[in-house]
Simulated scan of single mutants.
Amino acid sequence: MAKKKAFALRIDEEMLKAVEKWAADEFRSTNGQIEWMLHKCLKEAKRLKSKEDNNTTNNE
């Protein structure tokens, strides 16, 4: 598992309420929901290396 780093996030109150509701609907914590959302967006934008890419780089 990757090491996690904490940081402060400023977010609009209405947006936070929406994220909290979505997280509750999916049985996730708010933090877990934000991580999931960021991961999904990064993957869709092809900004996140796949695990296969990381393994290939590390094994060379």
Rank of each mutant, 00 (worst) to 15 (best):
A8P: 09
Q33R: 14
K43I: 04
E26R: 15
E14I: 11
K49E: 02
K4S: 12
L16S: 03
S29Y: 07
A24Q: 07
M15H: 10
R10H: 14
E13M: 05
M37L: 10
K49Y: 10
R28L: 00
A18N: 02
R47F: 06
S50H: 10
K40A: 03
K5H: 12
A23C: 00
E14F: 05
D12E: 08
E35F: 03
E13S: 07
K17L: 00
E52K: 15
L42P: 03
A2V: 08
L16A: 08
A6H: 14
L38H: 12
H39V: 08
T30W: 11
N58Y: 13
K5S: 09
K51T: 04
K17A: 08
R10C: 11
M15D: 04
I11E: 00
K21R: 09
K3F: 11
L16K: 11
E44Q: 15
N55K: 15
A2Y: 08
D25F: 01
T57D: 12
G32S: 05
T56E: 05
T57H: 13
D25V: 01
Q33Y: 04
K21H: 05
N31D: 02
E13Q: 04
S29H: 03
F27L: 01
E35D: 03
I34M: 04
I34T: 12
C41Q: 13
A24C: 08
K51G: 00
W36M: 10
N54D: 04
E60Y: 10
A8H: 14
E20R: 14
N55P: 05
M1D: 03
T57S: 14
V19H: 12
N54Q: 12
N31P: 03
A6P: 06
K21F: 09
K40Q: 10
S50F: 12
A18V: 07
K46S: 02
N54V: 13
Q33D: 00
N54C: 11
L48H: 06
K3H: 06
N54T: 13
L38N: 09
E14A: 14
R10P: 00
W22Y: 00
S50M: 12
E26Q: 01
M1V: 04
E13K: 09
E60K: 14
N55G: 00
W22L: 00
E13P: 05
T30P: 01
R10I: 14
T56H: 01
